[in-house]
Design a protein around this nucleic acid. Structure first.
Lengths: 357, 357
DNA sequence: TGTTAGCACTCACCTTAGTAGAGTGCTAAT
DNA sequence: ATTAGCACTCTACTAAGGTGAGTGCTAACA
């Protein structure tokens, strides 16, 4: 990945990337000579541009136009050349305000964070609802709604509340529910949430009525836990439509379609969660550029992805998706700050390490 | 609104609307004469078209082009001319399958319904989470998470489970929570959910610790109930981008932006909920065409809106948004069928009338 | 030897002009 | 009352020419 560029070539590459990000127009030698104070004539710059193109860092839409950074060009820019700005106070303020809405539900805070993130970065913000394998059941309860329906409520040590509507075949009375709640609480307390399904399947009481109910709960949870687990919050998809690279109607449609199908469980979430789970050192966000994402629909996009955490056990992926021609420095700085902010905020509220059990 | 059109004029208007909906191209007299079996020459049709234009039912993009239906033209079409097709069995099947995913959470079923609805109608589907003023509190519980955080769980007679994370200033022990839970349960059981906030504010125990906790719960609920109340599920927004009328990038962007900001609580939801609440006889969906919606961003769109119900007490708005050039008949039929399907499905599960209290 | 001025060349983009075609309104004939 | 015929209008498409931004190459220069 190293190219042994001369200092001058680096300067030129930097100028081209910055200019192209700002204008979305191919950058010519004259433009650089004039706008950027490199003290070089267009001819000299042309020579270096030709070499940068040979190295695969730049491309040319057609033979007599200016240059555009290639994926590799952006890669080099991100790894060696760009500066990461410090965020403005007003930006930080916006993030802190998420906390100020007093105490709220987990979902509300993640939702708000995604909104702020997309607004500040002008990209699409993606935040996964946190997952944990140290999350365990703290409270388990069946509540009857009517004669053949009840709600199953599962509360974990992290404060997440899951609920499932369950229908029964036979009508049962209210006393029955407090009995079985007592029984199941005893069985399930402390069970890791990831293990709940299996455990429910394993319990056999021998009592026909109990076992029927257990079977119903099992089915309901099977369908719903996965639905909730893969949930991600997406905000700012319309930001992409602003960009000239998505001008053509068909491109815009196919991209929005990709986002939408994925809103809950398909394409986009799968991609996002899959990439998130491969991150090794999760503390710093990584940048994937264009084809590096390996999804054809996103080959004109870049993804900055990292993860936030709640205490030491819980974590979720968080990322930004924009055109390859995105503001990498600002976006990265914004994402990092949001990771800090969100981690702090949620750790403060949900951290399980100071749990009294 | 009556125009006393001759039968022939009605036929011509019908042909123009159908053709324009199918092709998105202005319709000329020759086209009608050829494609539709009216037994009339183009000249005759032209005379009637001129009159229909005088009446405001048609417009002309420019002086030598064919005609396009105006909002009023669509209005007439919808009210007097169109046929409502019977749905195909495969369409009905898709709706019934929502039920087959076994028992599920309310949100999951509404989400699924919105997806199916948008897919079948090729429009944007909007479904509000059901509201009720006969919904009352059936279960109220505080559960500690760690030494200064607890979850408030509120379950209503309809099976809806609300939960709120609440922080306390002082640390309190576990026994304290079961005491206050007992106290509050006694106070709040049977309280209409719409009245919960006020009631919490009114309770003054005189006990300093209790009152602090009550104040915290009050604040948390204040912020969150409204967030949950206005929630609507939106699906199929990208369907609109397919249509030629939203070809221009800027239009597409402003429209998607309108949808997105509104995803949870602003523009689109407000509009949708406001219109929903003005419906008098909610049993049949109504059609709003173009400017009738009275939202500038949606002046090229039509909205079909109705409401579904759960038993007799709960109801929510449900609607379809498409270009004015949408398939009114098919969309209306689809929406009506979905209303039946969803109402049945949810009434079956959640109906409170056979509640044992 | 690295840098730059000069020059011929390329190619997208814009403007202009011309043409084809779909559609209209009007008039006169049926 | 209906329709055939005709002159007219306006968009959409195409071709041609001009403009300008940009390039690569060569030769001169410091």
């Amino acid at each position: 990945m190293e190219f042994n560029l001369t200092q001058r070539q680096q300067n030129i590459l930097l100028a081209i990337v910055l200019d192209y990000i700002a204008t979305a127009e191919p950058v010519g030698s004259r433009t650089i000579s004039k706008k950027y104070d490199l003290g070089l004539s267009p001819a000299t710059i042309r020579n270096d541009m030709a070499e940068l193109e040979d190295l695969g860092l730049l491309t040319q839409p057609h033979s007599s136009s200016g240059r555009i950074p290639s994926d590799l060009g952006y890669r080099n820019f991100v790894d060696y050349l760009m500066e990461k700005p410090t965020l403005s106070n007003s930006d930080k303020e916006l993030m802190k305000n998420i906390r100020n809405n007093n105490t709220s539900s987990l979902e509300f805070m993640i939702d708000q964070s995604a909104r702020v993130l997309s607004a500040l970065s002008n990209t699409v913000a993606l935040i996964q609802v946190p997952e944990s394998n140290k999350e365990f059941i703290k409270h388990f309860q069946l509540l009857p709604i009517n004669e053949n329906t009840f709600v199953t409520i599962v509360v974990t040590n992290t404060g997440k509340v899951h609920n499932f509507i369950v229908k029964t075949d036979k009508t049962v009375n209210e006393g029955f529910f407090s009995n079985i709640t007592g029984y199941l609480t005893e069985q399930l307390l402390g069970t890791p949430i990831s293990n709940l399904q299996k455990k429910l399947n394993d319990i056999i009481t021998g009592n026909q009525e109990y076992d029927n109910i257990l079977r119903s709960i099992y089915n309901s949870i099977k369908n719903n836990l996965s639905y909730e687990k893969n949930k991600i919050y997406v905000s700012g998809t319309s930001n992409l439509l602003k960009e000239p690279e998505f001008n053509e109607n068909q491109k815009a449609h196919s991209l929005m379609n990709f986002f939408e199908i994925g809103e809950k469980q398909n394409e986009l979430s799968n991609v996002f969660l899959a990439i998130g789970s491969t991150l090794i050192d999760k503390s710093d966000p990584i940048v994937l550029i264009g084809k590096e994402i390996k999804i054809s629909q996103l080959e004109n996009c870049s993804l900055i992805i990292g993860s936030y955490n709640i205490g030491e056990d819980l974590s979720g992926s968080i990322g930004l998706l924009g055109p390859t021609r995105m503001q990498y420095g600002k976006s990265l700085a914004t994402l990092e700050e949001m990771i800090k902010n969100l981690s702090n905020l949620l750790t403060n509220i949900y951290d399980v390490s100071n749990n009294f059990e």
